[in-house]
């Protein structure tokens, strides 16, 4: 690619990314009544979106080969249990990450 084409490609990626971020706010602007169905989605979608995001984090895990995703799944479960138990963000995230590092660098 020439430099002009690189700049154009980056501009296209920027424009399309902005479109995905702004479109909901453009279609349902502040001044106008948002349809009831969209308000309903606004209420229930966050839960499903967070769930999808967690699955998204595990998308690179290969269950069929290597260590079968064991470090990711074990550490992920440990974070969830730790948080259910102690409810400390720092402990769950910091402890979970250190645990994961130990698993991939020392155990598996």
């Amino acid at each position: 690619m020439s430099n002009t084409q690189i700049v154009l490609t980056v501009a296209i990626i920027m424009g399309a990314t902005m479109l995905t971020r702004f479109i909901s706010f453009l279609v349902f602007p502040a001044g106008k009544e948002t349809p009831a169905f969209i308000r309903y989605l606004g209420k229930v979608l966050p839960a499903a979106a967070m769930a999808m995001l967690v699955i998204y984090c595990f998308k690179g895990v290969d269950l069929t080969s290597g260590n079968h995703g064991a470090p990711e799944l074990i550490a992920g479960l440990a974070v969830a249990l730790m948080h259910k138990w102690k409810h400390s963000m720092l402990l769950s995230i910091g402890g979970g990450t250190v645990f994961y590092l130990v698993l991939i660098h020392l155990v598996f």
Binding site: M50, V54, S92, G96
Partner: peptide
């Protein structure tokens, strides 16, 4: 390698809280 697991952990923590 693996330090970015902090973000996965963050999302899991938020999911549990939710």
């Amino acid at each position: 390698t693996g330090v970015d697991f902090a973000m996965t952990a963050l999302f899991i923590v938020i999911l549990v809280g939710q």
